[in-house]
Write a protein that binds this DNA or RNA. Structure first.
Lengths: 112, 112
DNA sequence: TAATAATGTCGTAAAAATACGTCATAAAAG
DNA sequence: CTTTTATGACGTATTTTTACGACATTATTA
């Protein structure tokens, strides 16, 4: 019985981990990077930029969309995806705060 | 044939993603946080702090150790784990750089 | 209107991550 | 020396993630 134990942790840690996890796949990093570089929230032809099938890319897009990091605006038969600036800023804050908390003072030594 | 396509991406993206991924589980975040708070690199009794079996905690520790984020120093029968300050700083730099790259100018609007 | 394009959804196969129990080993305690 | 203690390594069950093909649907195009 290998049940998922993730929900036994602090909500705070779960929440933070979920965002780190979202950035834990090169395809999703590539999507975010692409959307940031091609400032004109280009449509789903992001597929052509990635070595993956359209279906798989769509799946990664959905993951990012579910977390709110990107949003898609339908224009006719096409869909324009773009970064959700507010959420991206919140993401930076969240991850930055965590990273900022795991530092040690310079005078600290492990093997003393 | 669902082969892993991760290696088809830029080394750069793969590398960055691997670090985000390492932080993508609450247990690993809890371990890092614990090591940072209890400044005295306490031994593997981190297990008592987590709702997981010792074996599983050990597995998470190994993951962090393999990435170099923490290091374990054997002292007799016990092992002192602690943050690898240099690597943690490098981690912050790496993730920070990526996050810094995915911003958009304020005057940018998706649905224009 | 018929054919083509662009997407999202569903089902599913394969791979990876999680989670433990059990063993083996080395050191500390008794 | 024998018994705990503290760990790491192995094997494996379950869950999750990753990756696609096949369809269905809605707009363009011809």
């Amino acid at each position: 019985m290998t049940t998922a134990k993730v929900e036994l942790f602090d909500d705070d840690l779960q929440h933070t981990a979920s965002y780190f996890k979202a950035l834990g796949h090169p395809a999703r990093l590539a999507i975010l990077k692409y959307l940031a570089e091609s400032k004109s929230c280009i449509s789903g032809d992001i597929t052509n930029e990635l070595p993956l099938s359209r279906t798989t890319v769509n799946q990664h897009l959905s993951e990012l969309k579910n977390l709110g990091l990107i949003k898609g605006t339908t224009q006719g038969a096409k869909v324009n995806y773009c970064l959700n600036t507010e959420k991206v800023m919140a993401l930076k804050q969240l991850l930055g705060d965590f990273l900022g908390a795991i530092t040690l003072p310079d005078n600290f030594s492990c093997n003393k």
